[in-house]
Protein backbone atom coordinates (compact mmCIF):
# COMPACT_ATOMS: atom_id res chain seq x y z
CA UNK A 1 0.00 0.00 0.00
CA UNK A 2 1.46 3.39 -1.08
CA UNK A 3 2.29 5.95 1.61
CA UNK A 4 0.14 9.07 1.27
CA UNK A 5 2.02 12.20 0.17
CA UNK A 6 2.88 14.58 3.00
CA UNK A 7 0.25 17.27 3.56
CA UNK A 8 2.92 20.00 3.77
CA UNK A 9 6.27 19.78 2.01
CA UNK A 10 9.07 22.30 2.24
CA UNK A 11 11.57 21.58 -0.51
CA UNK A 12 14.96 23.28 -0.02
CA UNK A 13 12.95 26.39 0.79
CA UNK A 14 14.83 29.67 0.70
CA UNK A 15 13.49 33.13 1.47
CA UNK A 16 15.64 36.22 1.09
CA UNK A 17 14.07 39.47 2.33
CA UNK A 18 16.83 41.44 0.61
CA UNK A 19 20.45 40.98 -0.47
CA UNK A 20 21.65 40.87 3.14
CA UNK A 21 18.80 39.35 5.14
CA UNK A 22 17.77 35.73 4.67
CA UNK A 23 14.67 34.35 6.35
CA UNK A 24 15.25 30.73 5.34
CA UNK A 25 18.27 28.98 3.84
CA UNK A 26 17.28 25.67 2.31
CA UNK A 27 14.71 24.16 4.67
CA UNK A 28 13.27 20.77 3.77
CA UNK A 29 10.46 19.34 5.84
CA UNK A 30 7.47 17.01 5.49
CA UNK A 31 4.35 17.29 7.64
CA UNK A 32 1.62 14.69 7.41
CA UNK A 33 -2.08 15.37 7.50
CA UNK A 34 -3.35 15.61 11.07
CA UNK A 35 0.09 16.21 12.56
CA UNK A 36 0.91 18.79 15.24
CA UNK A 37 4.35 20.34 14.95
CA UNK A 38 6.21 23.00 16.86
CA UNK A 39 8.70 25.19 15.03
CA UNK A 40 11.17 26.37 17.64
CA UNK A 41 14.14 28.67 17.56
CA UNK A 42 15.53 32.02 18.48
CA UNK A 43 14.26 35.30 17.05
CA UNK A 44 15.44 35.39 13.45
CA UNK A 45 15.76 31.61 13.20
CA UNK A 46 13.13 31.46 10.45
CA UNK A 47 10.12 29.94 12.26
CA UNK A 48 7.82 32.90 11.55
CA UNK A 49 9.05 32.99 7.94
CA UNK A 50 7.84 29.40 7.48
CA UNK A 51 4.42 30.46 8.81
CA UNK A 52 4.45 33.44 6.42
CA UNK A 53 5.36 31.26 3.43
CA UNK A 54 2.65 28.73 4.27
CA UNK A 55 0.07 31.52 4.66
CA UNK A 56 1.16 33.09 1.33
CA UNK A 57 2.35 36.31 2.97
CA UNK A 58 5.86 35.75 1.64
CA UNK A 59 6.86 34.05 -1.59
CA UNK A 60 9.72 31.55 -1.72
CA UNK A 61 12.88 32.96 -3.27
CA UNK A 62 14.16 29.46 -4.10
CA UNK A 63 12.84 25.98 -3.60
CA UNK A 64 9.17 25.41 -2.93
CA UNK A 65 6.50 24.95 -0.31
CA UNK A 66 3.63 22.61 -1.12
CA UNK A 67 0.33 22.34 0.74
CA UNK A 68 -1.95 19.47 -0.19
CA UNK A 69 -0.22 19.13 -3.55
CA UNK A 70 -0.44 22.86 -4.39
CA UNK A 71 2.90 24.58 -4.99
CA UNK A 72 3.07 27.97 -3.29
CA UNK A 73 5.98 29.14 -5.46
CA UNK A 74 3.71 29.33 -8.50
CA UNK A 75 0.55 30.60 -6.81
CA UNK A 76 -0.92 33.75 -8.40
CA UNK A 77 -2.30 36.72 -6.40
CA UNK A 78 -5.82 35.79 -7.58
CA UNK A 79 -5.47 32.29 -6.11
CA UNK A 80 -4.24 33.43 -2.69
CA UNK A 81 -7.67 34.21 -1.11
CA UNK A 82 -9.05 30.75 -1.95
CA UNK A 83 -5.90 29.10 -0.62
CA UNK A 84 -6.11 31.09 2.59
CA UNK A 85 -9.65 29.87 3.14
CA UNK A 86 -8.15 26.39 3.60
CA UNK A 87 -5.72 27.71 6.21
CA UNK A 88 -6.52 29.22 9.59
CA UNK A 89 -4.00 31.89 10.53
CA UNK A 90 -3.46 33.05 14.11
CA UNK A 91 -1.19 36.09 14.02
CA UNK A 92 1.28 36.90 16.75
CA UNK A 93 -0.54 40.12 17.75
CA UNK A 94 -4.10 38.59 17.82
CA UNK A 95 -5.22 41.19 15.24
CA UNK A 96 -8.57 41.88 16.91
CA UNK A 97 -10.64 44.93 16.04
CA UNK A 98 -10.97 46.93 19.27
CA UNK A 99 -14.24 48.62 18.27
CA UNK A 100 -16.02 45.31 17.65
CA UNK A 101 -17.31 42.82 20.20
CA UNK A 102 -15.98 39.27 20.32
CA UNK A 103 -18.79 37.85 18.19
CA UNK A 104 -18.51 40.80 15.78
CA UNK A 105 -14.79 40.17 15.32
CA UNK A 106 -15.57 36.64 14.19
CA UNK A 107 -18.67 37.73 12.27
CA UNK A 108 -16.75 40.46 10.46
CA UNK A 109 -14.22 37.93 9.16
CA UNK A 110 -17.07 35.67 8.03
CA UNK A 111 -18.77 38.58 6.23
CA UNK A 112 -15.45 39.42 4.53
CA UNK A 113 -15.33 35.95 2.97
CA UNK A 114 -18.86 36.26 1.65
CA UNK A 115 -21.00 34.67 4.36
CA UNK A 116 -24.46 36.08 4.94
CA UNK A 117 -25.72 37.72 8.13
CA UNK A 118 -27.92 34.68 8.63
CA UNK A 119 -24.89 32.36 8.49
CA UNK A 120 -23.02 34.61 10.91
CA UNK A 121 -25.90 34.43 13.38
CA UNK A 122 -26.10 30.65 13.05
CA UNK A 123 -22.42 29.73 13.08
CA UNK A 124 -20.62 32.22 15.34
CA UNK A 125 -21.87 30.74 18.66
CA UNK A 126 -20.63 27.26 17.69
CA UNK A 127 -17.23 28.63 16.63
CA UNK A 128 -16.87 30.55 19.88
CA UNK A 129 -17.91 27.47 21.81
CA UNK A 130 -15.13 25.45 20.16
CA UNK A 131 -12.55 27.69 21.84
CA UNK A 132 -14.51 28.20 25.10
CA UNK A 133 -15.14 31.92 24.64
CA UNK A 134 -18.88 31.97 23.99
CA UNK A 135 -19.53 33.35 27.48
CA UNK A 136 -17.58 36.53 26.50
CA UNK A 137 -19.31 36.98 23.12
CA UNK A 138 -20.54 40.49 23.97
CA UNK A 139 -17.27 41.75 25.43
CA UNK A 140 -14.89 44.08 23.62
CA UNK A 141 -11.28 42.89 23.14
CA UNK A 142 -10.02 45.48 25.63
CA UNK A 143 -12.18 43.81 28.29
CA UNK A 144 -10.54 40.42 27.70
CA UNK A 145 -7.42 38.83 29.16
CA UNK A 146 -4.55 37.93 26.82
CA UNK A 147 -5.61 34.28 26.79
CA UNK A 148 -9.20 35.21 25.95
CA UNK A 149 -8.03 37.49 23.15
CA UNK A 150 -5.93 34.65 21.76
CA UNK A 151 -8.96 32.36 21.88
CA UNK A 152 -10.93 34.90 19.85
CA UNK A 153 -8.07 35.02 17.32
CA UNK A 154 -8.18 31.22 17.07
CA UNK A 155 -11.99 31.32 16.73
CA UNK A 156 -11.61 33.76 13.83
CA UNK A 157 -9.08 31.44 12.21
CA UNK A 158 -11.66 28.65 12.33
CA UNK A 159 -14.41 30.43 10.36
CA UNK A 160 -13.64 28.53 7.16
CA UNK A 161 -13.29 25.24 9.06
CA UNK A 162 -9.73 24.87 7.72
CA UNK A 163 -7.84 21.57 7.63
CA UNK A 164 -4.64 23.46 8.55
CA UNK A 165 -4.05 25.94 11.36
CA UNK A 166 -0.92 28.12 11.52
CA UNK A 167 -0.18 29.91 14.78
CA UNK A 168 2.68 32.35 15.22
CA UNK A 169 3.78 32.57 18.86
CA UNK A 170 0.27 31.88 20.21
CA UNK A 171 1.50 31.86 23.79
CA UNK A 172 4.13 34.56 23.36
CA UNK A 173 2.36 37.19 25.45
CA UNK A 174 0.59 34.91 27.91
CA UNK A 175 1.24 33.69 31.43
CA UNK A 176 1.69 29.92 31.94
CA UNK A 177 -1.94 29.36 32.91
CA UNK A 178 -3.32 31.01 29.79
CA UNK A 179 -0.62 29.37 27.68
CA UNK A 180 -1.84 25.95 28.88
CA UNK A 181 -5.39 26.87 27.87
CA UNK A 182 -4.32 27.86 24.34
CA UNK A 183 -2.17 24.79 23.78
CA UNK A 184 -5.03 22.61 25.06
CA UNK A 185 -7.37 24.23 22.54
CA UNK A 186 -4.85 23.60 19.76
CA UNK A 187 -4.37 19.99 20.87
CA UNK A 188 -8.14 19.56 20.94
CA UNK A 189 -8.45 20.91 17.40
CA UNK A 190 -5.64 18.60 16.33
CA UNK A 191 -7.45 15.63 17.84
CA UNK A 192 -10.41 16.56 15.61
CA UNK A 193 -8.16 16.18 12.55
CA UNK A 194 -6.78 19.69 12.00
CA UNK A 195 -3.10 19.83 11.07
CA UNK A 196 -1.41 22.34 13.37
CA UNK A 197 1.84 24.22 12.85
CA UNK A 198 2.93 26.40 15.77
CA UNK A 199 5.92 28.73 15.81
CA UNK A 200 7.02 29.23 19.39
CA UNK A 201 9.87 29.68 21.82
CA UNK A 202 7.76 28.59 24.79
CA UNK A 203 9.79 25.54 25.86
CA UNK A 204 7.49 24.60 28.72
CA UNK A 205 4.51 24.29 26.42
CA UNK A 206 6.54 22.40 23.80
CA UNK A 207 7.64 19.93 26.46
CA UNK A 208 4.17 19.61 27.95
CA UNK A 209 2.42 19.07 24.61
CA UNK A 210 4.74 16.20 23.70
CA UNK A 211 4.40 16.71 19.94
CA UNK A 212 6.86 16.80 17.05
CA UNK A 213 9.45 19.57 17.37
CA UNK A 214 11.49 21.15 14.58
CA UNK A 215 14.27 23.37 15.78
CA UNK A 216 15.51 26.12 13.51
CA UNK A 217 18.63 28.22 13.71
CA UNK A 218 19.85 30.82 11.25
CA UNK A 219 17.16 29.97 8.68
CA UNK A 220 17.95 26.23 8.65
CA UNK A 221 16.66 23.14 10.44
CA UNK A 222 19.01 22.48 13.28
CA UNK A 223 17.45 19.48 14.97
CA UNK A 224 14.07 17.91 14.73
CA UNK A 225 11.52 15.27 15.38
CA UNK A 226 11.06 15.25 19.11
CA UNK A 227 14.69 15.08 20.02
CA UNK A 228 15.07 14.45 23.78
CA UNK A 229 18.55 15.94 23.73
CA UNK A 230 17.20 19.03 21.99
CA UNK A 231 14.42 19.50 24.54
CA UNK A 232 16.85 19.01 27.35
CA UNK A 233 19.16 21.65 25.87
CA UNK A 234 16.30 24.07 25.23
CA UNK A 235 15.09 23.58 28.77
CA UNK A 236 18.52 24.33 30.21
CA UNK A 237 19.27 27.33 28.06
CA UNK A 238 16.28 28.48 26.00
CA UNK A 239 18.09 31.43 24.44
CA UNK A 240 21.17 29.47 23.41
CA UNK A 241 20.11 26.92 20.82
CA UNK A 242 22.70 24.42 19.65
CA UNK A 243 23.86 25.17 16.11
CA UNK A 244 25.35 23.01 13.43
CA UNK A 245 29.09 22.81 13.73
Amino acid sequence: MATPAPYIQLKKLEVAYNDYVSGLRGVSLDVNRGEFIFLCGQTGSGKSTIIKVLSCQVKPTKGDAVIDGRSLASVTPEEVPMLRRKIGIVPQDFGLLPNKKVWENVGYAMRAVGRSKHEVRDEVPAILERVNILHRADAYPTELSGGEQQRVAIARALINNPPLLLADEPTGNLDPGHSDEIINILLDLNSQGTTIVVATHDIMQVERANQRVIQLAGGMIDKGDHDEELLQHMHEDPLEFPTES
Partner: peptide
Protein backbone atom coordinates in the same frame (compact mmCIF):
# COMPACT_ATOMS: atom_id res chain seq x y z
CA UNK B 1 -5.05 48.74 7.82
CA UNK B 2 -6.04 46.30 10.53
CA UNK B 3 -9.42 45.44 9.00
CA UNK B 4 -7.83 45.02 5.58
CA UNK B 5 -5.13 42.74 7.01
CA UNK B 6 -7.73 40.59 8.74
CA UNK B 7 -9.84 40.40 5.59
CA UNK B 8 -6.78 39.27 3.66
CA UNK B 9 -5.71 36.72 6.28
CA UNK B 10 -9.10 34.99 6.34
CA UNK B 11 -9.22 34.82 2.54
CA UNK B 12 -11.27 37.81 1.42
CA UNK B 13 -10.85 38.48 -2.29
CA UNK B 14 -9.10 41.59 -3.52
CA UNK B 15 -12.48 42.86 -4.78
CA UNK B 16 -13.93 42.62 -1.28
Amino acid sequence: KKEMRIMELVGATRQT
